[in-house]
Nucleic acid binder design. Structure first.
Lengths: 188, 188, 188, 188
DNA sequence: GATGAATGAGTATTCATTCAT
DNA sequence: AATGAATGAATACTCATTCAT
């Protein structure tokens, strides 16, 4: 319970959890995750106090990675539409090309183990994207709606589009664009 | 000649499952559900072969009720936009006013216990709504996209809107309309 | 619980029990036996008060059939050796040619459900054979041993021989004779 | 580095199983065995993967102990008859003086849980005794019979004799000798 | 008498977490 | 800090028996 020493081990556990939860669901045993990480089951609990704690940290890690990927290399000089489109396509590309992370994230998102605080923190990680969204819709038909509402719709669109891109990878790029255009029609 | 199997008991178990799962999640014990239904734990298994069977039937019941509510009293003589709006508002009203059913349905929708066959059957229950959607988008910008993709977007929008209506009930009607308008902008 | 009406049903249950226990062991559910007999599970209990009661009656029926088969047509005018050999071969033939009955009987014989009274009654059914045995050994080396001891040895020999005949049916007759000769060497 | 698995605990569970099964039969609950062994019910499963696994190991342990006892201190310089008699009397003495072990072994021997592999392994433990038997019968009337058949008869005799010795302990030694003489008449 | 639904005690096994080594 | 054995609560499902129809 003292400060754990090895960041490698923490990472190994997180990575193992992604793989195991993707294939076995949230019911996966901590012992299974530990073994997959090459760590003893006891050690898992020196890096994460409880299973729920592991879940919450995993959730945050994944959300943060997702947001960072979306904004990495953002062409801040371009038009807001271009920037939004850039973020959108990177976001969906990440989700599409990391199927285990996405599956695991999807399960965590609906889990009762994730605390409101974690949901809040995850939302903060999306601040950059929310800002983009704010500027995108500021002259559009949803300019008066609560931003959280619009964000929720955007998120839902991204989820649905990703599902479809995974199910029909041949036309993934096309689906991504179609969904972005739909988004733009909605808000701008 | 023996005591006949009672529809009341089946309903009681289904209703109890809705309540219990809404508050305890899918991990709820069958014994808890049975007790809540006023039935012995053994009896639960004469009405549902396994816990998974109960989950699947519950899922179908809820999906069917949702679709039926959306289409009940549909003004088939009105314009397609009016019809869609009618279905949309009934759909969201049902979801909003049955929070336990909605919570439970949300959990079931992502559960591994729900078989592909059940998902298929649930989809069939939505045939009427899908038809409305087809006619709604037939001249719009998404006329060439796979219907399933559009349906998925519509569903995601409905989910997001419902979440928001529940969190902010004072403006529920407004949110419903805003979401509908967003939908219409997207597809028509 | 009143006197049951139909002997047919009793027989059907007994016969079903033989088949089911032979294949599923003593743990077989009464419901399974009832279904195999074409009777409702409730009815089974009007013919046999408890499962243990069914087991005991089944045990007795099988033991009695076994003894009767061994002695049927006994050549009472022949030498005692001839008579014993006749009973022996009929006994083993029955065991060999009724594998389900034998399997079931073997399981019942070691079951805790069979009461001492039933074991006693089964022993009585073997009175005829025991008498043969008494006359067989009356001048032999075991003439002073308790008859029950000799009977026990004879029974053990018959069991072992039967096992072997079933495992090696091509030489069944030979094994039967070899075992009989061994028996005769032992007692006469 | 962690607490090592304790042989004492394994032994305690095995010993507890012997006692519990002797008195309650094979249906005995694993929890009962664990409690009798002074171990948590969970721990039982760190020493034995399943209940069936426990049964199989128990069966082997008992069979091995039985065979070892029979052959311990065998006077290999004596005549074959003397050697056989020595093994026979030690065998029956063990069976007689360990009634719980014997009861339990008898139940296990007919259990469906015991795998063919275990029966095979148990048979291997009896190799020494089988060898004695081979030399005992090599010039006798059963010299041409399959050894396995003769072994089966010998085993059946031993079982029957043991039963009788337990039921009539006052004359145990006498019964043992009578049975041995009967065996010798049979095979030598 | 016949039926089969109702009952609820009973059981192997799993798993998060703790703790001796 | 690391290990993995120890713990014991928790859970789906079965089954002999009873009883309403």
């Amino acid at each position: 319970m003292a400060r754990p020493r090895s960041d490698d081990k923490r990472s190994a556990i997180i990575a193992a959890a992604i793989r195991v939860i993707a294939s076995e669901g949230l019911g996966a045993a901590t012992a299974t995750i530990a073994k997959e990480a090459g760590v003893s089951n006891g050690s898992l609990f020196t890096y994460f106090e409880t299973k729920a704690d592991l879940m919450n940290q995993l959730y945050l890690d994944l959300k943060a990675e997702m947001a960072a990927t979306a904004l990495e290399g953002l062409p801040t000089k371009s038009s807001i539409r271009k920037q939004m489109q850039y973020a959108w396509s990177h976001w969906l590309r990440w989700a599409t090309s990391s199927p285990e992370k996405r599956r695991t994230l999807a399960q965590l998102a609906v889990s009762d183990d994730i605390t409101p605080a974690s949901h809040q923190a995850a939302s903060n990680a999306f601040a950059g994207i929310r800002e983009l969204l704010e500027r995108s819709r500021e002259n559009g038909p949803m300019r008066a709606a609560p931003l959280a509402f619009v964000a929720s719709l955007m998120n839902a669109l991204a989820e649905a589009a990703t599902d479809f891109m995974i199910r029909d990878p041949a036309n993934a790029e096309e689906h991504s664009k179609a969904a972005f255009n739909a988004l733009w029609r909605m808000i701008a």
